[in-house]
Design a protein around this nucleic acid. Structure first.
Lengths: 185, 185
DNA sequence: TACAATTATATCAGTTTGATATGTTTCCGT
DNA sequence: ACGGAAACATATCAAACTGATATAATTGTA
């Protein structure tokens, strides 16, 4: 029934490095995973409570006298075990939903030009993101030897670059094919 | 609140071509969208009822005397309008979740060889799917002039090929980098 | 000092997943 | 012709996830 809570492992993965608040976990996801994995507060906070209840993380309040709630979470031995177990298990599923492709699939209803516009917007979006990834790549290359983690981070960045480039190339080719079909009529 | 029901448009898109049962809609999604969009029965049947209640589709029972329930749905004028409106609106979001990358991101916890194994499995999976897409491509090229739809179908197939090739290339490069790091230690 | 931005937790309606249940009809081999 | 497997068909559900909103403290800055 239902599906397996993957957010559990994202949270455990980050807590494996350092103690964090829910908010900090969110910023880390946004900064380093966002181009291949997302998670919102609505998933993170409930998952942290779930994890605490089942003993995979422990929490402590860090607000020394202040009024602001600040709940730092730490991974437990059990948590590390659960993380390692999941990491060792075979990869189950990749998940994609491309709205651009859905619209293109039904594209014959629209004018050709509108589809071209959609494609160009898609292209520009990912073309614009490429320099950011390139920046990450350069940064990680520099510090590659400082921690075994950096090589793995680099691999995920290289994935982003490879796939975004594929998006851009495909969009160019698709636009060209649509333009050709325009003149052929 | 919540997010917009996209299944609505998948269903409307297919019904725009022909009258279909929920089951048939599912088979069409699996056959033609599955590598960039998925939907299960648990989403399709409730969406069809919702659509019928709001007048975007109409239904009729096709079981002439037989016992088996067979509900054929047709798109209405209002439904076509809703579909066209959504198609014309700007593309909102692309959505991906790559478990392989999540595991790789936390990969330093595992032995290097285990990460290599995961990558090779990933590579082989998509390498194996490429000939199927190539087959679709050839088929669609042949019948391209028979319907304006076919060009659009072809574009989505080309996307699949481009991206799957990017997966394979990336996996090869990632494996090589990991192997190099093995010998360097 | 006041205003904006950031930090921080929390909740919720609606959507989606992935599995299960249940039964009919068609196809195929013996 | 019979029986079992595969395909057809609808339906439901718990748990996960999205995307938005609410609330408030803290920090930076003009």
């Amino acid at each position: 029934m239902g599906k397996e809570n993957k957010t559990v492992y994202v949270v455990l993965g980050f807590l494996n490095h350092e103690d964090l608040t829910g908010y900090e976990i969110k910023t880390r996801i946004d900064a380093s995973l966002s181009y291949f994995w997302g998670a919102g507060f609505g998933q993170i906070y409930p998952t942290l409570r779930l994890l605490e209840k089942s003993g995979l993380v422990s929490k402590r309040s860090d607000n020394m006298g202040q009024k602001m709630e600040r709940i730092k979470y730490s991974i437990t031995g059990e948590g590390r075990l659960a993380l390692a177990k999941w990491l060792s298990a075979p990869v189950e599923s990749e998940y994609v939903k491309y709205e651009i492709l859905l619209k293109l699939f039904f594209g014959s209803i629209l004018e050709t030009q509108k589809n071209i516009d959609n494609l160009l917007e898609f292209k520009n979006m990912y073309d614009g993101k490429l320099p950011v990834l390139k920046g990450f790549e350069t940064e990680l290359e520099k510090i590659k030897d400082q921690s075994p983690d950096h090589l793995y981070y680099l691999l995920t960045v290289l994935f982003g670059e490879k796939v975004y480039k594929a998006y851009v190339e495909w969009a160019d080719e698709a636009v060209e094919l649509l333009r050709k079909s325009q003149t052929n009529n």
